[in-house]
C-alpha cells in the first residue's frame, strides 16, 4: 500500500516539475500522528508536522455548567495552552478560529445540553502552528467518537517576497514571508471552513493559495484515512 503511494507521489512530482518552474517549496513536511495516548480524556491525539507538535485532548459529550448550557445543541469549548507562560490574546484568537471550525463540522444537535471540550497543548512550535492545532483537534475528535458532518484539516501557505508559494512553512519561512494564509477545509466537498491571513497579497494570490491548499488537503485526508485504517485493522 505504502509502496504504491510513494511511486504515485514520485510520478506526481516528476510531472509537476516538468510543467512548472516551481522549486521544491511545494511539499508538506513529514506527518506523524498518535491517537489515544492519554488515559483520562475521552479522545486524544498528538499531531506532528515536521518539528511542530500539538497534543489534543477531548472530553465529551459530558455534563455542562448551567450557565453555559445551550438547550438545543452541545456547547463546544476550545482551550489552547501555550508552552511558555499564560494564555494571551493570540491564544484566545486562535481558540476562537478553531472553535468556529469545529462548530461547523461537529453535529452538536445530536447531543443537546452537553459540553464538548477540546484542550490543545502546544508541545513545540516550528511553523504552521494553527494548521497543526486544527489537525490535532480533528484527530482527537475522531478518537473521542464525536459525531461529525465531515472531517477537517488545516493547511498553511506562505508567500515570500517574490510571490513564491510555500506550503506548510517552517518557522524560518514564516518569518521571511510576505503573507501567511491558513485555511481549514472539509473532507466532503473540499470547501473552505475557515481562513485567516496575515500580510499583503493580491486577489489572484489568494485564489492560488486556496487551490494549493485544496491540493494539499487531499494528502492530509489521505493521511487521516490511512492512519485510521491502520488503527482499526485487525492485524
Amino acid at each position: 500500500m505504502e509502496g504504491v503511494m510513494q511511486t504515485d507521489a514520485k510520478m506526481r512530482t516528476e510531472s509537476g516539475a516538468e510543467s512548472s518552474p516551481r522549486g521544491p517549496g511545494c511539499s508538506l513536511r513529514h506527518f506523524a500522528c498518535e491517537q489515544n495516548l492519554l488515559s483520562r480524556p475521552d479522545g486524544s491525539a498528538s499531531f506532528l508536522q515536521g518539528d511542530t507538535s500539538v497534543l489534543a485532548g477531548v472530553y465529551g459529550p459530558a455534563e455542562v455548567k448551567v450557565s453555559k448550557e445551550i438547550f438545543n445543541k452541545a456547547t463546544l469549548e476550545v482551550i489552547l495552552r501555550p508552552k511558555i507562560g499564560l494564555p494571551g490574546v493570540a491564544e484566545k484568537s486562535r481558540e476562537r478560529l478553531i472553535r468556529n471550525t469545529c462548530e461547523a463540522v461537529v453535529l452538536g444537535a445530536l447531543h443537546p445540553r452537553t459540553s464538548i471540550t477540546v484542550v490543545l497543548q502546544v508541545v513545540s512550535d516550528a511553523g504552521s502552528l494553527l494548521a497543526c492545532c486544527l489537525n490535532a483537534a480533528c484527530m482527537a475528535l475522531v478518537d473521542a467518537g464525536v459525531p461529525m458532518r465531515a472531517l477537517f484539516c488545516g493547511v498553511t501557505c506562505a508567500l515570500d517576497s517574490e510571490g513564491t508559494l510555500v506550503l506548510d512553512p517552517t518557522a524560518k519561512q514564516e518569518k521571511e514571508a510576505r503573507a501567511i494564509l491558513t485555511f481549514a477545509l472539509d473532507s466532503v466537498e473540499r470547501k473552505l471552513l475557515m481562513s485567516t491571513t496575515k500580510g499583503l497579497y493580491s486577489d489572484a494570490e489568494l485564489q492560488q493559495c486556496l487551490a494549493a491548499a485544496q491540493a494539499a488537503s487531499q494528502h492530509v485526508f489521505r493521511f487521516y484515512r490511512e492512519s485510521l485504517q491502520r488503527r482499526y485493522s485487525k492485524s
Binding site: 510513494q6 507521489a9 506526481r12 512530482t13 510531472s15 509537476g16 510543467s19 512548472s20 516551481r22 521544491p24 511545494c26 511539499s27 508538506l28 513536511r29 513529514h30 506527518f31 506523524a32 500522528c33 498518535e34 491517537q35 489515544n36 495516548l37 498528538s46 506532528l48 515536521g50 518539528d51 507538535s53 508559494l165 506550503l167 489572484a204 494570490e205 485564489q207 492560488q208 486556496l210 487551490a211 494549493a212 491540493a215 494539499a216 494528502h219 493521511f223 490511512e226 492512519s227 491502520r230 488503527r231 485493522s233
Partner: peptide, 28 residues
Amino acid sequence: AESIASQRITAFKMEKAPIDTSDVEEKA
C-alpha cells in the same frame, strides 16, 4: 517525532509529501 513508537497501531507516520501545484495559477 522520533520518539513515537511506530510499531503501535494507534501511531502512523507519513514521509514528506510533494504536492503538485503546477495548475494552481490556472485554477486561480
